[in-house]
Structure formats: C-alpha cells, structure tokens
Design a protein around this nucleic acid. Structure first.
Length: 207
DNA sequence: AGCACGATTAACT
DNA sequence: GTTAATCGTGCTC
C-alpha cells in the first residue's frame, strides 16, 4: 500500500478524520525536492454551514470556496494580518467541512524548520496552526492543492496509530464571540505528552 | 473606496 | 495575566 493517504480517508465524518489524522505525517516537498515533515499531534474539526465556528457558516465566498471542494483538498487561509492556516477538506464534495492542523512534531528537515521558525525553542517550534504553516512553508499558493494527487507537494502520509488513552478532546481554540453550543463542542483532538514521547520512540524515518 | 474584524503569535508586566 | 502587530477578506456606503 502506498504511503500517501488516499482520498477515501478524507471522505468520512470530519470528527473521524480529525481523530485519525493524529499520528499521521504531514509532508511538504520543497522546490529543491527536499522533504520536510512532521507528525500531526493536534487537529480541530469544522463541520458545515450550521457550525457557527466554521468559516462556511457565512456561505460560500472566494476565500472559503475550497471547503466545498472534494475531500483531500487543502484549504489555506490568511488571518490576523500575518498568519496562514492549513486545513484538510473532508466529507463529500458540496458539503463544506475541514480539519484545521494545529500542531506537529518535526520529523524530517528539522534544520529547515528551525531556520524558518527563527531558531525558536523546541517547545514552541510547531505548536500552533500558524507555526505549522511557517515551519512547512505553506501559504496561499497551496490553497486548493490536492493532497491526494500523485505529484502533490503537500500531502498526508501513513504514520503511527495513536491509542485512545493518548488522546484528549476538548473545545476548539480561539472561537471568541462564537455562540453556544458551537463554542464548546469538543471537536479539538490532541496527542498527550506521553503519547508524543511514545510516538517518537517507536517512529521510523526520523531524521 | 472605506472599514471592522480575525480558527494567532510573540513580547511584554 | 495583557496587548500590539498587520492585512486579506467581506461587507457597507
């Protein structure tokens, strides 16, 4: 079985995809052909127009159009005047939903990641959605990119299976002003510190 | 054409 | 704990 995660993986319930993305590897092929990657350790689900925390709740616009596309597309958007965020589109085409990738643990190309992150300490290197994009050189050019295409320069690769005991769930981050019940939906999934330790011990392909 | 805001981050007290 | 940075986006005038 090829390592690149197929479209069928993303064509499922967004909550399932968010959960199952933990432990998988997010891979960026740079212009030089070098691989830079990290294991996904935090993700959040944004599900449909009814979800008032989801960008799709305002209807389809030029910015959020990728969410209506087929599963497996990247939805990359700009916010706070300076930050890019990376999501993976889920469910069926025409239903706007996606998973925000909030944190990774560096796997390959760590020196490039550290350079792009201005040498920041390991504990704050890639623990935020804008940090993930900075680390892997993701910006608007990757909006709408097909992560399932054979020649994709950004894609998800099969990684480690994370047991439930190493996963925590909680409310999504940063939804100030979003009304209940959406604000408190436990749609954020994180690998625990113990889970990360174990993942690093047992993972292959670390460089 | 102008304006208020944001799925954040880093630097501060 | 607080707050400035910074600009694309979507809305109003």
């Amino acid at each position: 079985m090829p390592p690149q995660v197929p479209r069928a993986f993303f064509a499922r319930s967004t909550l399932v995809v968010a959960r199952q993305l933990l432990g998988q590897r997010l891979v960026r092929i740079e212009a030089s052909g070098q691989r830079t990657s990290g294991w996904i350790v935090e993700a959040e689900a944004y599900i449909g127009q009814a979800d008032l925390g989801c960008h799709a709740h305002v209807g389809r616009t030029r910015r959020n159009a990728a969410m209506w596309g087929p599963p497996g597309l990247a939805y990359v958007y700009f916010t706070y005047g300076m930050h890019w965020m990376l999501n993976v589109v889920t469910e069926r085409e025409g239903f706007p939903a996606a998973v925000l990738l909030r944190a990774i643990v560096p796997s390959e190309g760590e020196s490039r990641i550290r350079r792009r992150r201005s040498g920041r300490p390991t504990r704050v290197l890639t623990n935020g959605p804008a940090k993930v994009c900075q680390a892997l050189a993701v910006d608007r050019r990757l909006n709408g990119h097909d992560l399932c295409a054979p020649a994709a320069t950004l894609f998800i690769e099969r990684g480690r299976r994370i047991p439930n005991r190493h996963i925590t769930r909680g409310p999504r981050v940063g939804l100030t002003g979003v009304p209940e019940p959406w604000k408190s939906k436990p749609w954020r999934f994180c690998v625990t510190a113990a889970g990360i330790d174990r993942m690093e011990e047992t993972a292959d392909g670390t460089t």
